[in-house]
Design a protein around this nucleic acid. Structure first.
Length: 570
DNA sequence: GCCGTTTTCGGCCCGACTGTTTTCAGTCG
């Protein structure tokens, strides 16, 4: 059983225990373990019980259960829980305003077991008579059931960030707004987002709140209090606004940026020092020690301030205490882009147009990487057209000054691991990016062998979008990434971090692992239009920062001459 | 159920909003 499946079961165990009325700390333990497993860049099935116990939040009992699940795919404890009369009720928890207590009450008093039972009970007006619930809750449950079918999946970052930024710009015009910024997973640049968080500082919250719920984008107001409101936009995503006094800006921004596990750890640290942290500041009893800026908050806790992208409790707190947070890569460090498509295959613009756009961004080089023939619909290049394109690129290089256009290709890795063009053709190119676009359903060992075979081919420079995931659309294919990383390292290959907002591939936890192993990364855009060059590089760089990438971990932060030397390009 | 230079037992992050209540439980993040 893979890590994601195990993580899901641990969460389900927590849900059932919660409905059963277990103590909250036991439930919290399962949730913490679930998160650890989900973010682990290593297959649980390859680990021993002892190794599992080393992981944060996993002790003797859960290690044993997780190990059993990973190796046998079954767990008696889980099976038994699933047979409990409360087990089916976990489905009810996805309805807003139905938590474990209400779920159990609905079951015991009305016999509600499923979402459709719940809907029926609500329509028949039975819920309003339960103690602790009422007519309003009944109405909210019905609304919640309708909404359930609209957006229960997390949304890819690229779909929500531009819209959230637009809302920020609109609210910025409200004169009572002093400071305004994104917070939450949007600020941390997570690849998918559950809802948008916006933070405002203001001495007068009421007009800001009013302006927010009256925005033209707003479809429905979920809640609207004095300093906090939630809305659903017309694009069907939730945006939460919180307003704090200007004095508390730093504390609140830190608090609402998260992540949750980062915050929990920071707070625990504060408690050990006899202090406490909330969204209004760092406190010693009633005395506020810090609150105005994030830097001030961290400093008062004896820590270095750190970029939001790494606040995931993946070791950043320990390093911040030692003042050892590295400088992470920034957009200004990028000197070139190593995957893009032109009108020679499925791109929109010409080689010259995209080269000019890249030059405007201050790049010193780009690689043109149109498709090879296997991906039929994209009009991929055969050997003949490869030769023609090389000539065209020479012409463009003669014409343009200040940017070097490199000839390249995004060549398909066939099912058997062979490349889609003969080595004789690929050898003529400056940069060869190899990728998988077909036969996604190969068994894991075959997929792993297929990719490793490509990595062992001397003509390949870069492995493109290594997991093949399409956010919100297609799961990554089954592949042993540990083996892929080892093969990349052994063969001196570069792994791509594809910045296209549909992909963001490699995933952050694997970027971190690759970096730690010393594997070089290319943050590329996979642009299909000139506009993508800048917009998608922003995503790629931000997401790379989540994987702790420093300037020196990338190949495309090298200045031109060093870059050419590294890839032995004339 | 996890965890430990304040503990192997006794702690475990913190607050807003809602809807139901007459002071707070449940939900949510």
């Amino acid at each position: 059983m893979n890590n994601q499946q195990i993580s899901k079961i641990l969460d389900e165990i927590a849900d059932i225990l919660e409905i059963q009325g277990e103590i909250v700390f036991k439930i919290r333990a399962y949730r913490k373990a679930s998160e650890t497993v989900a973010n682990l860049p290593k297959e649980i099935s390859t680990m021993t019980e002892e190794e599992l116990q080393e992981l944060p939040g996993i002790g003797e009992a859960i290690a044993k259960k997780v190990h059993t699940l990973a190796t046998t795919g079954k767990l008696e404890y889980y099976e038994a829980l699933k047979k409990s009369e409360f087990a089916p009720l976990v489905d009810l928890l996805q309805i807003p305003s139905v938590g474990p207590k209400h779920a159990r009450l609905l079951y015991e008093r009305l016999g509600v077991k499923t979402v459709s039972d719940l809907e029926k009970a609500a329509r028949e007006g039975k819920i309003r008579d339960l103690s602790g619930l009422g007519a309003k809750t009944e109405e909210n449950i019905l609304k919640g059931i309708t909404a359930l079918f609209r957006h229960k999946e997390r949304i890819p970052l690229g779909q929500i960030l531009p819209k959230a930024e637009k809302i920020v710009e609109e609210l910025r015009k409200v004169k009572e707004v002093k400071e305004i910024a994104l917070a939450g997973s949007l600020r941390r640049m997570k690849e998918t987002i559950a809802d948008g968080d916006i933070l405002v500082s203001s001495a007068k919250p009421a007009p800001v709140m009013q302006a927010f719920v009256k925005l033209p984008e707003v479809e429905r107001v979920l809640s609207h209090g004095g300093t906090k409101a939630s809305v659903i936009t017309k694009d069907n995503f939730q945006v939460d606004l919180r307003v704090v006094e200007p004095e508390a800006w730093g504390a609140a921004w830190h608090y609402f940026t998260g992540s949750k596990s980062h915050n929990v750890k920071v707070r625990t640290l504060a408690v050990k020092k006899g202090l406490s942290v909330n969204e209004y500041g760092l406190w010693k009893r009633k005395k506020r020690l810090a609150s105005k800026t994030e830097e001030e908050m961290y400093k008062a806790l004896g820590m270095q301030c750190m970029p939001p992208e790494i606040r995931e409790d993946w070791g950043e707190i320990e390093l911040a205490l030692k003042n050892k947070i590295p400088r992470l890569v920034q957009s200004e460090d990028i000197k070139g882009d190593l995957q893009m498509h032109t009108n020679w295959s499925d791109g929109r613009d010409s080689i010259e147009e995209i080269a000019l756009a890249a030059k405007k961004l201050g790049y010193q080089y780009i690689a043109i990487t149109d498709h090879s023939p296997l991906v039929g619909i994209t009009g991929g290049l055969d050997e003949k057209r490869v030769n023609k394109q090389i000539e065209e690129i020479k012409k463009v290089n003669k014409k343009l000054k200040g940017i070097r256009v490199l000839s390249g290709i995004e060549v398909d890795i066939r099912g058997d691991g062979k490349l889609d063009l003969p080595d004789s053709a690929l050898k003529k190119l400056d940069i060869v990016v190899a990728t998988v676009h077909s036969r996604f359903n190969l068994p894991k060992d075959q997929m792993t062998k297929r990719i490793i075979k490509a990595l062992e081919n001397p003509v390949v420079d870069i492995l493109g979008h290594p997991t093949g995931r399409l956010l919100g659309k297609r799961d990554p294919y089954e592949v042993d990434l540990d083996q892929v990383l080892d093969a990349a390292l052994a063969n001196g290959k570069v792994l791509e971090l594809n910045g296209s907002p549909d992909r963001l591939d490699l995933p952050d936890i694997w970027v971190r692992k690759a970096r730690d192993k010393g594997i070089k990364i290319a943050v590329s855009t996979d642009s299909h239009k000139t506009e993508h060059l800048k917009a998608w590089m922003r995503y790629g760089v931000a997401y790379g920062r989540r994987g702790w990438l420093r300037k020196e971990d990338l190949v495309n932060t090298l200045p031109l001459q060093k870059f050419l030397k590294l890839f032995k390009i004339q």
